[in-house]
Design a protein around this nucleic acid. Structure first.
Length: 876
RNA sequence: GCGGGCGUGGUGGAAUCGGUAGACACAAGGGACUUAAAAUCCCUCGGCCAAGGCUGUACGGGUUCGAGUCCCGUCGCCCGCACCA
């Protein structure tokens, strides 16, 4: 019989409505079953969802639906990371209010997400710009402040001297402001900081407990925290009028063993000594100013050419009073790290070597490889940075690097200089405290008041929330809160005098550092309901982009610790399992070249393919378009595919199935139109095969076959069921998809046979069992299609509420296995033998094989390697 | 610059712990059905030579009975670098 084509436009909204009616995705905190919290990183409401969102949320939804079928009480919420710069940029460009712009975007994107049929608990939805949310964030801020986890200090920002405003790093392009084009300067402001460094050691050590995180993310965090063991070492300044009061310079070094290879000291442009010298030395002052024009991003600083300026000051070597070294100001030494001063050993550090070559400073090799010859070992263009044997280092000669470190450290620790030890062992971290002050409007106001008499006064909790005023304008650069006529005016909670509100708002990373905890009780008056938070947390499976591997995840780990210290939760690690998914990428198309070229959207072209050559043409004019490289979907390159277009033509199930197919989920997926069509063909094929057989299937109860013709059908279904469950447990969605294809291929002929009425009862029962399994394993990926098929087979109820089926153990084990047989490591044939055959039996059977006999040519084999159940290798 | 990752047919990828390289899909080619097209179904599909074999996982080395997988080096691409989210 003929079956109508599957029409997702009709089917998908219908099932979404049924799920709503049955209210099956709303989560009850008091449900006694085992909990499972699956969370995808919440989106920034940029305007419309993109394919990256579809992929991210499809993955989370598969996990949520699968775990629900497995009997867990699943929490799967959604919200909006809604504060941030784009809303202010839009306000400046389009004269819209950030609040209106943001909530309109949220409305659009919520509608788009709902059409995907995600199994989300929408009753817990919030946006970080909701007053109810940032109210509680201010509550947390006050608690952290009270605990001593927050302080103020001076720190640098990118300052645009034309727009008179602070710029984000991404707004600094090649050292210039993105709007004004003016050279950016560094400027110091007093800003608020979270003391993340208090937890540096714990954040580092606890990485070992995160065994469900990708190894690479743990490694990146470890390197980011950057624990090093070294020495602070004081150098005596050779008396000099220019040095003034400065009698010594303290450096931090992790390589005290290379001390005899030192050839200069380098200090940061903002080092107190540099600042002092700059007062009397215009050259140094000019150079330091130049260093300050690089902007504040580390990448910009480090890719800049390494430069320095001799201060004229000299220091004495700690181990030789007759040895004097020059002190440079250098642009690669950072005031934020260590002591803001280093000693340069050109032979043992590439940066120091480049610097020494540039300024004609001596290069003395002090470490050489263990097997090198001390009399001939030289440093050319490359420093020797490995461990080895000490040379040219007086009493250290012949020692290992490690022993030399210990020798220098203990000698200098014991030596007194100006009344205190010359050196001290010190553990240092690269991690810096987290600066959260932003001079912007669209963020969470920092709830403090500045009073002339009382200083900094926290806003009393009963006065929260400190609400953002709505009546602001964006016609001028700078922070609208600063120039608001009345908002700042407030009386001091202490003394009642006129005082001023803090106008800095919080970094948006703060908003995203605890939203996962808020989802557990978004209605709570306090930031969390501890019982709910402790019950649900940690998040069992967190899914998001690799671009958040360091900052967002590290800040969230810090926040959870800080919330523990302030009694809002009682755990340290917020995310038990982490999965980082890849991006969705697409070909680019370009019309014309060079300056006149323009990017063309995929929707505006058609592709022709002849003899393997693909050419693209503009739909409107038939002009040929150049096919460019495959890149991350971005507005600027126009290589975006709007999920709405895909949903309109293929439906949500096809889109979800496609983004989970082919590519491993942690790698990028290339969006291709032909790939989507392939996925859609599968949807139609499954619908047709099930639909044609359904009238017969619905008449007979499911029953797997244990013998006869139908055995193969049941074996295929149960093996796939087992494998797909394991794949879902590992988030290996692409493998699950491949197995689903395989199963449908295996069921195609049996389903047709049933449809044609040529099957006996036992066969139909086995096919029905297999069909139900098929429908249940596709249900997490293609929930609408699954409900429609489920209904057609006449199973009753919703698949979304059905328990995950059990596979039959007897159907998934093989009694015989086929082993590949190699001769000298190359496959030459196969051996089929009982699964539980003993090693001796396998060897005997292999030696009896014709091709083995031929290869041996009468001789004895040198060796036979038998890897049980895997392979046999005969060495002749 | 520093830190992290990736590289397998025409294409996306599979290969669980070092054990049959190319599962599954896309594209392409051929055939069946059709008045025709679409849809569907069947076959072929890394390269080289005729079988049988040789060769092949970015490139160059190494370890091993056996390497896509481990080690060393090179090249290319991607992510992060603290005020994008």
């Amino acid at each position: 019989m003929a079956v109508e084509r599957y029409n997702p436009r009709e089917v998908e909204p219908r099932w979404q409505a049924k799920w709503n009616e049955a209210d099956i995705f709303t989560t009850d905190n008091n449900d006694p079953r085992d909990k499972y919290y699956v969370l995808e990183m919440f989106p920034y409401p940029s305007g419309r969802i993109h394919m990256g969102h579809v992929r991210n949320y499809a993955m989370g939804d598969v996990v949520a639906r699968y775990k629900r079928a497995r009997g867990f009480n699943v929490l799967h919420p959604m919200g909006w990371d809604a504060f941030g710069m784009p809303a202010e940029n839009a306000a400046m460009q389009n004269k819209t209010h950030p609040k209106a712009w943001t909530y309109e975007n949220i409305a659009t994107m919520r509608k788009q997400l709902k059409s995907l049929g995600l199994s989300l608990d929408w009753s817990r939805e919030f946006a970080t710009c909701d007053v109810e949310y940032y109210h509680r964030q201010q509550h947390l801020f006050l608690d952290f402040l009270e605990k001593g986890l927050i302080y103020r200090k001076k720190s640098k920002v990118n300052w645009d001297p034309v727009d008179q405003t602070v710029l984000a790093n991404e707004q600094v392009i090649e050292g210039r402001g993105w709007r004004s084009g003016a050279l950016v300067e560094q400027r110091e402001l007093t800003q608020w900081f979270f003391k993340i460094t208090d937890f540096a050691q714990d954040l580092l050590e606890s990485l070992d407990t995160l065994d469900q995180w990708p190894e690479k993310v743990r490694l990146m965090q470890k390197n980011w925290i950057g624990r090093s063991e070294g020495l602070t070492l004081r150098w005596e300044v050779v008396s000099d009028a220019a040095a003034g009061e400065f009698k010594e310079v303290t450096v931090y070094t992790t390589r005290p063993d290379t001390l005899f290879g030192a050839s200069f000291l380098a200090i940061a442009a903002d080092h107190p000594l540099a600042l002092h010298i700059a007062q009397s030395n215009p050259e140094v002052a000019a150079f330091a100013d130049e260093c300050r024009k690089t902007g504040t991003s580390l990448a910009a600083l480090e890719t800049a050419e390494k430069k320095g300026m001799d201060t004229g000051i000299k220091v004495r070597h700690p181990l030789d009073p007759d040895w004097e070294l020059p002190v440079y100001v250098a642009n690669f030494v950072l005031m934020d790290y260590g002591t803001g001063a280093i000693f340069g050993c050109p032979a043992g550090d590439q940066r120091d070597l480049d610097f020494a070559r540039k300024y004609g400073l001596p290069v003395t090799p002090v470490v050489m490889p263990a097997d090198a010859d001390a009399s001939t070992f030289e440093i050319g263009d490359e420093a020797f940075t490995d461990d080895g044997v000490m040379i040219n280092s007086r009493f250290l000669n012949g020692m290992t690097t490690e022993a030399a470190f210990e020798e220098i450290a203990s000698r200098l620790e014991a030596e007194m200089f100006n009344g205190s030890p010359r050196a001290e062992r010190k553990v240092n971290y690269r991690l810096r405290d987290w600066g959260i002050s932003r001079q912007r409007y669209w963020g969470c106001p920092i709830p403090v008041i500045h009073c002339e008499d009382c200083g900094i006064v926290p806003v009393p909790k009963q006065d929260l929330p400190v609400q953002l005023p709505d009546d602001v304008t964006f016609d001028k650069p700078g922070n609208p809160l600063d120039r608001h006529p009345t908002w700042r005016q407030v009386s001091c909670p202490h003394c009642g005098k006129n005082a001023l509100r803090e106008t800095d708002t919080m970094d948006t990373f703060v908003d995203s550092s605890w939203y996962f905890a808020r989802f557990t009780a978004p209605w709570a008056d306090a930031p969390t309901e501890p019982e709910a938070a402790n019950g649900w947390l940690p998040v069992d499976q967190y899914i998001g982009g690799i671009e958040h591997a360091i900052l967002h995840l590290l800040y969230s780990r810090f926040f959870t610790r800080a919330m523990k210290e302030t009694g809002h939760v009682n755990l340290k690690e917020p995310f038990k399992g982490l999965f980082t998914q890849g991006m969705v990428v697409h070909e680019t198309y370009r019309l014309g070249s060079g300056m006149n070229g323009q990017w063309i959207a995929p929707a505006d072209i058609r592709i022709e393919e002849n003899d393997g050559t693909r050419r693209a043409f503009l739909l409107s004019s038939n002009e040929e378009v150049t096919i460019g490289s495959i890149e991350k979907m971005s507005k600027s390159k126009k290589n975006v595919v709007d999920p709405d277009d895909i949903l309109a033509s293929y439906g949500s199930d096809t889109a979800r199935f496609f983004v989970l197919s082919d590519s491993p989920p942690d790698r990028d997926v290339i969006w291709t139109e032909s790939g989507v069509e392939g996925s859609h063909r599968f949807v139609q094929r499954l619908w047709r095969l099930i639909g044609e057989a359904a009238p017969h299937l619905s008449e007979i109860a499911a029953n797997p076959a244990s013998e006869g013709e139908a055995l193969a059908v049941s074996q295929a279904a149960h093996k796939t069921l087992k494998a797909v469950g394991e794949d879902f447990d590992k988030l290996a969605f692409n493998k699950a998809v491949a197995r689903i294809y395989e199963l449908l291929n295996a069921l195609a002929a049996p389903l047709t046979k049933v449809a044609e009425g040529k099957a006996d009862e036992a066969y139909v029962a086995a096919v029905r069992d297999a069909s139900c399994i098929l429908v249940q394993i596709i249900a997490p990926i293609m929930p609408h299609l699954a409900e429609e098929c489920w209904n057609l087979i006449g199973t009753g109820g919703l698949v979304a509420k059905a328990a995950w089926p059990q596979f039959d153990t007897a159907l998934v084990v093989e009694s015989e296995i086929t082993l590949p047989v190699q001769i000298n490591g190359k496959k030459r044939g196969e051996l089929t033998i009982a699964r539980d055959a003993h090693q001796n039996e396998v060897e005997a059977a292999v030696l009896a094989l014709d091709f083995v006999q031929n290869a041996l040519d009468g001789q004895q084999p040198k060796k036979i390697v038998v890897v049980p159940k895997r392979i046999v290798n005969v060495v002749v």
